[in-house]
Design a protein around this nucleic acid. Structure first.
Lengths: 145, 145
DNA sequence: AATTTGATTTAGAATAATTCTAAACTATAT
DNA sequence: ATATAGTTTAGAATTATTCTAAATCAAATT
Protein backbone atom coordinates (compact mmCIF):
# COMPACT_ATOMS: atom_id res chain seq x y z
CA UNK A 1 0.00 0.00 0.00
CA UNK A 2 1.46 3.31 -1.04
CA UNK A 3 -0.73 6.05 0.37
CA UNK A 4 -3.20 6.68 3.11
CA UNK A 5 -6.73 5.52 2.47
CA UNK A 6 -9.25 8.33 2.25
CA UNK A 7 -10.75 7.26 5.55
CA UNK A 8 -7.41 7.31 7.37
CA UNK A 9 -6.44 10.57 5.75
CA UNK A 10 -9.60 12.14 7.10
CA UNK A 11 -9.10 10.69 10.57
CA UNK A 12 -5.55 12.00 10.56
CA UNK A 13 -6.30 15.58 9.62
CA UNK A 14 -9.30 15.68 11.93
CA UNK A 15 -7.26 14.44 14.85
CA UNK A 16 -4.30 16.73 14.14
CA UNK A 17 -6.63 19.67 13.63
CA UNK A 18 -8.39 18.97 16.87
CA UNK A 19 -5.03 19.11 18.63
CA UNK A 20 -4.12 22.39 16.88
CA UNK A 21 -1.52 20.78 14.64
CA UNK A 22 -1.07 20.81 10.89
CA UNK A 23 -1.34 17.97 8.46
CA UNK A 24 2.00 17.62 6.70
CA UNK A 25 3.36 15.17 4.12
CA UNK A 26 5.78 13.79 6.71
CA UNK A 27 3.02 13.15 9.24
CA UNK A 28 0.87 11.48 6.60
CA UNK A 29 3.75 9.30 5.51
CA UNK A 30 4.70 8.23 9.03
CA UNK A 31 1.06 7.45 9.84
CA UNK A 32 0.73 5.46 6.63
CA UNK A 33 3.87 3.48 7.48
CA UNK A 34 2.44 2.62 10.88
CA UNK A 35 -0.90 1.50 9.43
CA UNK A 36 0.77 -0.45 6.67
CA UNK A 37 2.69 -2.96 8.74
CA UNK A 38 1.37 -3.17 12.25
CA UNK A 39 4.26 -4.91 13.91
CA UNK A 40 5.04 -2.35 16.61
CA UNK A 41 8.07 -0.74 14.98
CA UNK A 42 10.56 1.37 16.90
CA UNK A 43 11.28 4.97 15.88
CA UNK A 44 14.38 3.70 14.14
CA UNK A 45 12.42 1.17 12.11
CA UNK A 46 9.84 3.79 11.21
CA UNK A 47 12.71 6.03 10.12
CA UNK A 48 14.17 3.35 7.83
CA UNK A 49 10.82 2.53 6.26
CA UNK A 50 9.84 6.15 5.83
CA UNK A 51 13.19 7.09 4.36
CA UNK A 52 12.77 4.53 1.59
CA UNK A 53 9.75 6.45 0.33
CA UNK A 54 10.70 9.96 1.44
CA UNK A 55 14.50 10.04 1.40
CA UNK A 56 14.89 13.55 2.78
CA UNK A 57 13.13 12.92 6.07
CA UNK A 58 15.25 13.14 9.22
CA UNK A 59 15.25 11.13 12.39
CA UNK A 60 14.22 14.22 14.37
CA UNK A 61 11.18 14.60 12.15
CA UNK A 62 10.23 10.98 12.63
CA UNK A 63 10.29 11.55 16.38
CA UNK A 64 8.32 14.76 15.93
CA UNK A 65 5.71 13.07 13.76
CA UNK A 66 5.36 10.12 16.10
CA UNK A 67 4.92 12.49 19.00
CA UNK A 68 2.26 14.43 17.08
CA UNK A 69 0.40 11.21 16.33
CA UNK A 70 0.57 10.15 19.96
CA UNK A 71 -0.56 13.56 21.16
CA UNK A 72 -3.57 13.61 18.89
CA UNK A 73 -4.53 10.11 20.02
CA UNK A 74 -4.11 8.09 16.83
CA UNK A 75 -1.11 6.13 18.00
CA UNK A 76 -0.09 4.58 21.29
CA UNK A 77 3.40 4.12 22.63
CA UNK A 78 4.29 0.64 23.78
CA UNK A 79 7.14 0.28 26.22
CA UNK A 80 8.54 -3.08 27.12
CA UNK A 81 11.34 -3.35 29.62
CA UNK A 82 13.35 -0.25 28.66
CA UNK A 83 13.66 -1.37 25.09
CA UNK A 84 13.22 1.38 22.51
CA UNK A 85 9.66 2.69 22.44
CA UNK A 86 7.40 1.00 19.90
CA UNK A 87 4.43 2.57 18.15
CA UNK A 88 1.01 1.01 17.76
CA UNK A 89 -1.95 2.38 15.80
CA UNK A 90 -4.36 -0.16 17.28
CA UNK A 91 -6.88 1.89 19.26
CA UNK A 92 -9.18 -0.91 20.38
CA UNK A 93 -8.60 -2.24 23.90
CA UNK A 94 -5.89 -4.84 23.86
CA UNK A 95 -3.03 -6.29 25.83
CA UNK A 96 0.49 -7.02 24.57
CA UNK A 97 2.44 -10.22 24.41
CA UNK A 98 6.21 -10.00 24.30
CA UNK A 99 8.00 -13.06 22.94
CA UNK A 100 11.31 -13.61 24.73
CA UNK A 101 12.68 -15.61 21.83
CA UNK A 102 12.05 -13.26 18.93
CA UNK A 103 11.57 -9.99 20.79
CA UNK A 104 8.40 -9.41 18.80
CA UNK A 105 5.32 -7.84 20.33
CA UNK A 106 1.82 -9.02 19.53
CA UNK A 107 -1.53 -7.41 20.16
CA UNK A 108 -3.91 -9.52 22.20
CA UNK A 109 -7.54 -8.42 21.98
CA UNK A 110 -9.23 -8.45 25.37
CA UNK A 111 -12.93 -9.06 25.94
CA UNK A 112 -15.18 -6.05 26.17
CA UNK A 113 -15.16 -4.59 29.66
CA UNK A 114 -12.21 -6.57 30.95
CA UNK A 115 -9.96 -3.54 31.26
CA UNK A 116 -12.78 -1.80 33.14
CA UNK A 117 -13.01 -4.74 35.53
CA UNK A 118 -9.32 -4.64 36.24
CA UNK A 119 -9.45 -1.20 37.80
CA UNK A 120 -11.70 -2.65 40.48
CA UNK A 121 -8.63 -4.01 42.26
CA UNK A 122 -7.59 -0.43 42.98
CA UNK A 123 -8.32 1.13 46.37
CA UNK A 124 -11.07 3.78 46.23
CA UNK A 125 -8.77 6.77 46.18
CA UNK A 126 -6.79 5.51 43.19
CA UNK A 127 -8.20 6.92 39.98
CA UNK A 128 -6.80 5.27 36.84
CA UNK A 129 -7.21 6.61 33.32
CA UNK A 130 -5.11 3.96 31.66
CA UNK A 131 -4.52 0.26 32.14
CA UNK A 132 -1.57 -1.55 30.66
CA UNK A 133 -1.36 -5.31 30.49
CA UNK A 134 1.76 -7.03 29.21
CA UNK A 135 2.47 -10.75 29.05
CA UNK A 136 5.92 -12.14 28.52
CA UNK A 137 6.74 -15.63 27.35
CA UNK A 138 7.04 -17.57 24.16
CA UNK A 139 4.95 -18.82 21.27
CA UNK A 140 4.40 -22.56 21.05
CA UNK A 141 4.61 -23.62 17.46
CA UNK A 142 1.96 -25.77 15.86
CA UNK A 143 -0.47 -25.20 18.66
CA UNK A 144 -3.36 -22.98 17.68
CA UNK A 145 -5.69 -23.38 20.62
CA UNK B 1 16.96 0.21 60.32
CA UNK B 2 20.68 -0.26 59.98
CA UNK B 3 21.32 -3.83 58.97
CA UNK B 4 19.63 -6.77 57.42
CA UNK B 5 17.40 -8.82 59.66
CA UNK B 6 18.65 -12.34 60.25
CA UNK B 7 15.78 -13.68 58.16
CA UNK B 8 16.55 -11.46 55.20
CA UNK B 9 20.25 -12.13 55.50
CA UNK B 10 19.54 -15.84 55.24
CA UNK B 11 17.20 -15.41 52.29
CA UNK B 12 19.82 -13.30 50.56
CA UNK B 13 22.75 -15.67 50.89
CA UNK B 14 20.56 -18.66 50.06
CA UNK B 15 19.29 -17.01 46.91
CA UNK B 16 22.71 -15.78 45.83
CA UNK B 17 24.23 -19.15 46.58
CA UNK B 18 21.58 -20.90 44.57
CA UNK B 19 22.47 -18.67 41.61
CA UNK B 20 26.19 -19.39 42.07
CA UNK B 21 26.98 -15.92 43.35
CA UNK B 22 28.72 -14.72 46.45
CA UNK B 23 27.33 -12.80 49.36
CA UNK B 24 29.23 -9.52 49.64
CA UNK B 25 28.91 -6.50 51.91
CA UNK B 26 27.83 -4.39 48.95
CA UNK B 27 25.06 -6.79 47.98
CA UNK B 28 23.87 -6.99 51.57
CA UNK B 29 23.84 -3.22 51.84
CA UNK B 30 21.96 -2.68 48.59
CA UNK B 31 19.41 -5.32 49.53
CA UNK B 32 18.98 -3.76 52.95
CA UNK B 33 18.43 -0.34 51.35
CA UNK B 34 15.72 -1.79 49.13
CA UNK B 35 13.95 -3.49 52.02
CA UNK B 36 14.25 -0.44 54.23
CA UNK B 37 12.24 2.00 52.16
CA UNK B 38 10.04 0.27 49.65
CA UNK B 39 9.25 3.17 47.39
CA UNK B 40 10.56 1.74 44.11
CA UNK B 41 13.84 3.65 43.97
CA UNK B 42 15.85 4.03 40.78
CA UNK B 43 19.46 2.85 40.59
CA UNK B 44 20.51 6.42 41.14
CA UNK B 45 18.45 6.72 44.30
CA UNK B 46 19.78 3.41 45.55
CA UNK B 47 23.28 4.72 44.85
CA UNK B 48 22.71 7.88 46.87
CA UNK B 49 21.21 6.02 49.81
CA UNK B 50 23.85 3.34 49.77
CA UNK B 51 26.69 5.82 49.51
CA UNK B 52 25.57 7.53 52.70
CA UNK B 53 26.29 4.33 54.62
CA UNK B 54 29.06 2.89 52.45
CA UNK B 55 30.83 5.90 50.93
CA UNK B 56 33.25 3.95 48.77
CA UNK B 57 30.63 2.13 46.73
CA UNK B 58 30.48 2.98 43.05
CA UNK B 59 27.57 3.38 40.68
CA UNK B 60 28.78 0.39 38.64
CA UNK B 61 28.66 -1.74 41.76
CA UNK B 62 25.14 -0.60 42.54
CA UNK B 63 24.09 -1.71 39.06
CA UNK B 64 25.98 -4.98 39.54
CA UNK B 65 24.36 -5.63 42.90
CA UNK B 66 20.88 -4.81 41.65
CA UNK B 67 21.41 -7.13 38.72
CA UNK B 68 22.57 -9.89 41.06
CA UNK B 69 19.49 -9.43 43.21
CA UNK B 70 17.23 -9.52 40.17
CA UNK B 71 18.99 -12.59 38.79
CA UNK B 72 18.61 -14.50 42.02
CA UNK B 73 14.93 -13.59 42.19
CA UNK B 74 14.80 -11.40 45.30
CA UNK B 75 14.08 -8.18 43.50
CA UNK B 76 11.94 -7.25 40.52
CA UNK B 77 12.56 -4.51 38.01
CA UNK B 78 9.69 -2.13 37.42
CA UNK B 79 9.67 -0.21 34.17
CA UNK B 80 7.23 2.59 33.57
CA UNK B 81 7.24 4.41 30.27
CA UNK B 82 10.99 4.49 29.59
CA UNK B 83 11.67 6.17 32.89
CA UNK B 84 14.73 4.88 34.74
CA UNK B 85 14.24 1.32 35.95
CA UNK B 86 12.94 1.03 39.49
CA UNK B 87 13.60 -1.80 41.91
CA UNK B 88 11.00 -3.59 43.99
CA UNK B 89 11.60 -6.27 46.63
CA UNK B 90 7.90 -7.15 46.86
CA UNK B 91 7.62 -10.74 45.68
CA UNK B 92 3.92 -11.29 46.25
CA UNK B 93 1.69 -10.89 43.21
CA UNK B 94 0.80 -7.27 42.72
CA UNK B 95 0.10 -4.61 40.13
CA UNK B 96 1.58 -1.12 39.99
CA UNK B 97 -0.06 2.26 40.07
CA UNK B 98 1.81 5.19 38.58
CA UNK B 99 0.69 8.61 39.75
CA UNK B 100 0.98 11.16 36.94
CA UNK B 101 1.16 14.02 39.40
CA UNK B 102 3.94 12.88 41.68
CA UNK B 103 5.58 10.28 39.49
CA UNK B 104 5.47 7.87 42.40
CA UNK B 105 4.77 4.18 41.95
CA UNK B 106 2.60 2.22 44.35
CA UNK B 107 2.17 -1.51 44.80
CA UNK B 108 -1.39 -2.71 44.44
CA UNK B 109 -2.01 -6.17 45.86
CA UNK B 110 -4.17 -8.28 43.55
CA UNK B 111 -6.51 -11.05 44.71
CA UNK B 112 -5.17 -14.57 44.73
CA UNK B 113 -5.43 -16.17 41.30
CA UNK B 114 -6.23 -13.00 39.40
CA UNK B 115 -2.94 -12.94 37.53
CA UNK B 116 -3.56 -16.59 36.63
CA UNK B 117 -7.00 -15.70 35.28
CA UNK B 118 -5.58 -12.93 33.13
CA UNK B 119 -3.52 -15.30 31.01
CA UNK B 120 -6.76 -16.92 29.89
CA UNK B 121 -7.24 -14.10 27.38
CA UNK B 122 -4.21 -15.42 25.49
CA UNK B 123 -4.68 -17.63 22.44
CA UNK B 124 -3.69 -21.27 23.07
CA UNK B 125 -0.25 -21.07 21.51
CA UNK B 126 0.82 -18.12 23.63
CA UNK B 127 2.64 -19.30 26.74
CA UNK B 128 3.20 -16.56 29.31
CA UNK B 129 5.52 -16.82 32.28
CA UNK B 130 5.00 -13.29 33.50
CA UNK B 131 2.12 -10.87 33.68
CA UNK B 132 2.55 -7.17 34.19
CA UNK B 133 -0.28 -4.89 35.11
CA UNK B 134 0.23 -1.15 35.36
CA UNK B 135 -2.36 1.51 36.08
CA UNK B 136 -1.76 5.17 35.45
CA UNK B 137 -3.70 8.03 36.92
CA UNK B 138 -3.85 10.07 40.07
CA UNK B 139 -4.58 9.76 43.76
CA UNK B 140 -7.70 11.45 45.05
CA UNK B 141 -6.99 13.00 48.38
CA UNK B 142 -9.22 12.47 51.37
CA UNK B 143 -11.01 9.56 49.78
CA UNK B 144 -10.11 6.24 51.30
CA UNK B 145 -12.64 3.94 49.65
C1' DA C 1 50.97 -20.27 55.28
C1' DA C 2 51.67 -19.01 50.46
C1' DT C 3 49.66 -19.26 45.92
C1' DT C 4 46.46 -19.83 42.48
C1' DT C 5 41.89 -19.10 40.84
C1' DG C 6 37.94 -16.84 39.87
C1' DA C 7 34.55 -13.60 41.28
C1' DT C 8 33.74 -8.81 42.56
C1' DT C 9 34.47 -3.98 42.81
C1' DT C 10 35.78 0.21 40.88
C1' DA C 11 36.54 4.49 37.86
C1' DG C 12 35.94 5.99 33.80
C1' DA C 13 34.91 5.38 28.87
C1' DA C 14 31.44 3.92 25.61
C1' DT C 15 26.80 3.22 23.96
C1' DA C 16 22.30 4.29 22.40
C1' DA C 17 17.62 6.15 22.52
C1' DT C 18 15.79 10.33 22.86
C1' DT C 19 15.54 15.36 23.38
C1' DC C 20 17.21 19.85 22.49
C1' DT C 21 18.82 23.83 19.60
C1' DA C 22 18.86 26.97 16.17
C1' DA C 23 18.54 27.81 11.45
C1' DA C 24 15.97 27.02 7.17
C1' DC C 25 11.61 26.20 5.21
C1' DT C 26 6.48 26.22 4.57
C1' DA C 27 1.93 27.50 4.82
C1' DT C 28 -1.49 30.26 6.41
C1' DA C 29 -3.33 34.68 7.89
C1' DT C 30 -2.93 39.55 7.47
C1' DA D 1 3.14 40.90 -0.72
C1' DT D 2 4.38 40.29 4.10
C1' DA D 3 4.25 38.82 8.61
C1' DT D 4 3.47 35.05 11.71
C1' DA D 5 3.64 30.77 13.54
C1' DG D 6 4.26 26.00 12.95
C1' DT D 7 7.37 22.43 10.96
C1' DT D 8 11.48 20.25 9.37
C1' DT D 9 16.21 19.43 9.62
C1' DA D 10 21.20 18.34 11.01
C1' DG D 11 23.75 17.94 14.49
C1' DA D 12 24.82 18.61 19.38
C1' DA D 13 23.47 17.38 24.02
C1' DT D 14 21.54 14.44 27.44
C1' DT D 15 21.14 10.45 30.24
C1' DA D 16 20.42 5.75 31.86
C1' DT D 17 22.90 1.95 31.35
C1' DT D 18 26.63 -1.15 29.83
C1' DC D 19 31.32 -2.09 28.95
C1' DT D 20 36.39 -2.32 29.94
C1' DA D 21 40.33 -3.24 32.26
C1' DA D 22 42.76 -2.87 36.34
C1' DA D 23 42.67 -3.54 41.34
C1' DT D 24 40.84 -6.06 45.18
C1' DC D 25 39.11 -9.86 47.62
C1' DA D 26 37.91 -14.42 49.11
C1' DA D 27 37.87 -19.21 48.62
C1' DA D 28 40.35 -23.42 47.28
C1' DT D 29 44.63 -25.77 46.68
C1' DT D 30 49.24 -26.70 47.25
Amino acid sequence: MKTLKQMDRGALSDALDHAGQRTTPQREMVFSILLDERNHPTADEVYTRTKSRMPTISMATVYNCLEALVTCGLVKQVNIEREPTRYCPNLSPHAHFHCRETGRVYDVPVPEGMMKDLVKVLPGNYSADSVELVFRGHLEKGKTK
